[in-house]
Design a protein around this nucleic acid. Structure first.
Lengths: 237, 237
DNA sequence: TGAGTTATAGACCGTTGGTCGGTATGATAG
DNA sequence: CTATCATACCGACCAACGGTCTATAACTCA
């Protein structure tokens, strides 16, 4: 094979792109390293020049996801025009938006990310995202507790619970996808329901009237999903 | 190798025992099938006579866990001497007891089950347990909602959230174990804190005064864990 | 005793993640 | 315009893995 030398950072990003596409469509376990390097048109030696292992590749991917998700959220937690509830809602909505309706190159597609075989990948991403988001969440909740908007509660605890909600969705949707008609309809239904559930749970944990927390308008997920399904996006560069 | 024929059910249980020990100490991925069959003193052919795949073995293991955990819980949800809150507390406490301080042959050891590489195993177990426990939880919550003990809420939703709490503990403790001194102390601390957190969260979700839900007395986990660590149990038959 | 089924053995296979010795390329200095 | 050196890359190779297959020993029952 002809030897092509590229700028290291570019190569690295390229590798992440191809890995992302394969991991998302086939799952981390089923997508082999050979598939990844073949897809990227690179040799084994080159790959191991950039990553120490397949596992390290996954880690890097999760980090990239988290970084991308964090971008454009930071400003919300500083916005002086919002009260704590507004900030919390803003941050939750934005993080959900980042997960679902970003450009396909960033956070990935609902249809694949939730497949059972992607548990490990999903989990890693969530951990990485949690590390980035928690400090912001904690600050917002602290402010809310101080100014009396929220009922007293361990702020870090709330942050933990919020991030955990993200993980929870995986099982629900995975089960819906796996079971029966394997149709998006069930999965979407399950996800919508789960979101409403968590909204109310959060309301009550924070001592707010039911309906205060709004991660997204009802029907939002369905709208985005059916649109996305038609266009069928998702491959890397 | 000499050919030893055993009663199929016994063989099966034996296989599960050895698999359990290996999966718990090394994780599902790292423990190879060859390790399992070597440990059980059995041939490949024999193994595949009992299980369709390594994955199926994991599934069977999770089922067994769930069945064992469910035993001795059923009666709580029927106990006529308890009100809904009492039943809920009873069920939560019992399920936690099943996880932590059962005989080592049953639910497994804190020190290993929470290791990061055991995510998949833990997840499977939790799913299986969730399937068994949810109906009981749903009934209790329904009763509580009807007689006014609990604030109105989607009972299945609450059950989902409760079961999710189980999964949440994994990350927390895994992180604590992995980070820094890798000491039990941190993990125990984290777990105790997480339990308190969920108690209050549940209180508020169900509209109860803080402190109503009691999964276990404070310090309970630490007591059990330090005791268990000294005796160092855990190998199969 | 013999036929049929079930439980076991173990050689074998394709694939996988990972290693290693080598080589082409681009930058730097003389 | 070289000589040098680190870097980016190649691809053959490897041990180990999950899984398949054929053969056969042991049980069952007529």
């Amino acid at each position: 094979m002809p030897r092509v030398i590229k700028h290291p950072e570019l190569r690295r990003e390229e590798l992440l792109d191809h890995a992302q596409a394969l991991f998302l469509t086939q799952g981390y376990d089923r997508a082999s390293l050979n598939d990844v390097i073949a897809s990227a048109g690179i040799s084994k030696g080159a790959f191991y020049h950039y990553f120490a292992s397949k596992e390290a590749l996954l880690e890097a991917l999760a980090d990239r996801f988290a970084k991308q998700a964090l971008a454009g959220v930071q400003h919300i937690s500083d916005d002086p025009g919002l009260d704590p509830l507004g900030r919390l809602n803003g941050l939750l909505a934005q993080s959900r938006r980042a997960k679902i309706d970003t450009a396909p190159e960033a956070w990935a597609l609902f249809e694949t990310i939730f497949r059972p075989e992607n548990l490990v990948l999903f989990h890693r991403i969530n951990l990485a995202a949690s590390a980035s988001f928690s400090p912001l969440l904690v600050r917002i909740i602290q402010q809310g507790v101080e100014d009396g908007t929220f009922r007293t509660f361990d702020p870090e605890g709330v942050a933990d619970i919020v991030m955990q909600f993200g993980m929870a969705t995986h099982d629900v949707v995975a089960k819906a996808i796996a079971g029966g008609d394997a149709d998006m309809e069930m999965a979407i239904e399950a996800l919508e329901r789960r979101v409403r559930l968590y909204e109310i749970a959060l309301d009550r944990i924070l001592g707010l009237p039911d309906g205060s927390i709004q991660i997204g308008e009802p029907g939002y997920i369905r709208a985005v999903m059916t649109a996305r399904r038609k266009s069928g996006a998702g491959k890397p560069s």
